[in-house]
Amino acid sequence: MHNVTLIESESLEKRYGGGTLALADLTVSIEPGIVGLVGANGAGKSTLIKLALGLIAPTAGRIRVLGLDPLTEVERVRSQVGYMPEHDCLPPDMTAAEFVTHMGRMSGLPAATARERASETLRHVGLYEERYRAIGGYSTGMKQRVKLAQALVHDPELLLLDEPTNGLDPEGRQAMLGLVQRIGTEFGISVVVCSHLLGEIERICTSLVAIEGGRLLRSDSLSAMTQHKGVLAVEVDERVEEFVARLTAAGLDVREQGRELLVRFDDEKTYDVIRDAVVDLDLSLHRLEQRRHQVADLFRDSADRTAGSEVGDVQHA
């Protein structure tokens, strides 16, 4: 994997006709790896991808992809970047082999190389046996794999995948995520995966970039986000406010979530403070367990909010 920054933007802004602001003052630097670009639908993820591909021009600011200007260095970007669009846009009458070969040619491969690479890529995504069938007869899962294959065919340095699990059942989603992870680890290709489902892609990513309302919410490596020791989930049956006041006075960071109290776990002393408060207040302790910090909570915390977009509300397995 190359060390050049994947996508770098500075004060990037995009307004569509009618004044709709899709991205506002977005400054971000996305480093190599498997990167989750997350946000609710309409957050500006697809707009950022289209700007990165040079499909649209920014209203203000600048963007670079692998150090290249997508508007003036179009052919170099096309040869080094693979793109899997969100929507179904496949020609139903072509076979997968023909279509993926054609897309290889479009990315600058010679004819014989494109044919060879198409077969190889279709094998990687599990469609080798079906490669001479017309795409129109494919299932949704197979169509998604064709889209992935055409993005991969020219052996790019960077893959941009827009909602790759769209329309798939749970088994299909897992299979697609497994493929993406393999591409990022075994093939050494950097991947930016756009999704409104943080909990789903978090498992395969090395870093996450969250945008909301066209603005950067947070960008960090997954290890940095989860390096806190975690949180303790505590549940008592009564006098919760007194209990929270006691813990807060002792310097603990406490957040209420339904019937649970989430207490940031810094070290073993955290247990002592909770135990002493339970004894002093003569409470019944229903539950005390340690949890890994959930990334959704960290995004929610960074925006200093209690309820938010699908990014914050996603359920974790």
Rank of each mutant, 00 (worst) to 15 (best):
M1R: 12
M1W: 09
V4E: 13
L6A: 07
L6V: 05
E8R: 07
S11H: 09
V28D: 00
I30K: 01
P32T: 02
V38W: 00
G42A: 03
K45H: 02
K45L: 04
S46R: 01
L51D: 06
A52L: 04
A52S: 08
G54E: 04
A57H: 04
G61I: 01
L68V: 02
D69M: 02
V77E: 07
Q80C: 09
V81Q: 10
C89W: 11
L90G: 04
P91N: 12
P92R: 11
P92D: 13
A96M: 11
E98A: 06
F99L: 14
F99K: 13
H102N: 11
R105Q: 15
M106Y: 15
S107L: 13
L109D: 13
A111M: 14
A111W: 14
A112H: 10
A114G: 11
A118K: 08
S119P: 09
L122N: 08
Y132A: 14
R133W: 11
A134L: 15
K143I: 09
Q144A: 10
V146P: 10
K147C: 09
E157I: 06
L159I: 15
L160C: 11
D162F: 06
D162Q: 08
P164G: 11
L168M: 09
R173H: 07
R173Q: 12
V180I: 15
I183R: 13
I183D: 06
G188Q: 11
I189A: 03
S190Q: 11
V192A: 07
V193D: 02
H196D: 03
G199F: 09
T206R: 13
A210L: 01
G213M: 03
L217H: 00
S219W: 04
S219E: 06
Q227W: 03
G230D: 04
V231F: 05
V231D: 03
L232M: 06
A233R: 14
V234P: 02
V236T: 04
D237Q: 08
V240L: 08
V240H: 04
V240E: 11
V244P: 03
L247P: 01
L247I: 03
E260A: 14
V263W: 04
V263D: 06
T270L: 06
D272W: 09
D272K: 09
I274K: 12
V278H: 06
V278E: 12
D280I: 01
D280S: 07
L281P: 06
L283V: 04
S284W: 03
R287P: 06
E289A: 14
Q290A: 14
R291A: 07
F299Q: 00
R300F: 00
A303Q: 00
D304S: 02
R305L: 10
R305P: 00
R305K: 10
T306W: 01
T306P: 01
V311E: 01
A317V: 13
